[in-house]
Design a protein around this nucleic acid. Structure first.
Lengths: 158, 158
DNA sequence: TGTAAAATCACCCGAAAGTATGAGGGTAAA
DNA sequence: TTTACCCTCATACTTTCGGGTGATTTTACA
């Protein structure tokens, strides 16, 4: 709901209140002159007016009071498949593994043979052997399968 | 806050209202007899009472009205490491991979050599070679690294 | 410009991995 | 009981891997 409409409703309430007040006073005056008023004491009028306008006040207040909002925060667990890989560069530095070596490591993890890796990287088979050997040294492993396993543990590979 | 306390606060408000009403009426009566009242018209009293009790009504309403609560649901993302592994037995059946073969596959994935696997399973090296060969056939791969990669993709291995 | 690290390549050799084939024993279903 | 599958093991052979060593070229950096 918009602000202007809210303000109009407030204004209307006040207007109704004013009209009601006038009407009631008029009614009372009319009653006074016409009927039983002369016999009634002032206290009864006062009490009547008090009760009426208390009700009016209550009505006004309820009409005008802003709804108090209590924000209840409900935690909803959302399962997020944690499949985004972030390379652990710290480990990479500590181990002293170069870019090229990491590249070879990744291809090893994909199941490629040294020959295939050599072809893919446009270098000789011997070069790949050297790279993989260095990687194994740095990872302190003996086999490529071990290297892959350890590299994944160390977040060097997805 | 407890219910009983809430009810007490309501009761107290009503009590205060009653007392105030009585006190005001008494005050007005006193004022009437003592001072200026005789000269004032009835309408002024009525208006005065009306305004006072309208205020009182408003106060009462605000005091008694239940706070309207608007429940706002806030979704809070909670990252859950999705590390629970469930073996995909369907694929296992489709591929026709036996228990023993899966066992060998798991040890291969852990980076063990065929010799180590043979020792761990108390069988000969040749047996492991046979098992691994069959696994490679069934997984349609040529190397153990490929087998590991594919087995993980197929949820045959954590 | 000199130097250290990285990248490239080569050769050798033994170990490991993988292929092919066959065979014997066990179990469970047809 | 036969058939089919699994597990086991063996032999023979080929390929790949991994370790060791050494060398040349690039690249980055002080």
């Amino acid at each position: 709901m918009s602000m202007s409409l809210n303000y109009f409703s407030k204004f209307r309430s006040v207007f109704i209140y004013g009209v009601s007040l006038a009407a009631l006073l008029f009614l009372l005056k009319w009653l006074e002159w016409r009927f039983i008023i002369v016999n009634y004491t002032f206290e009864i009028y006062a009490g009547f007016i008090a009760v009426i306008f208390t009700g009016l006040g209550i009505w006004l207040a309820l009409k005008l009071s802003k709804p108090k909002t209590t924000i209840v925060t409900v935690e909803k667990e959302t399962v997020i498949t944690n499949d985004e890989f972030v390379l652990n560069e710290n480990v990479l530095d500590e181990m002293g593994i170069s870019k090229r070596e990491l590249e070879v490591l990744q291809l090893i993890a994909q199941g490629l043979s040294n020959q295939q890796i050599a072809e893919q990287l446009f270098v000789s088979l011997n070069t790949i052997k050297t790279h993989s050997s260095k990687v194994f040294e740095k990872l302190e492993v003996q086999r490529r399968t071990q290297a892959v396993e350890k590299a994944k543990r160390l977040s060097l590979i997805p």
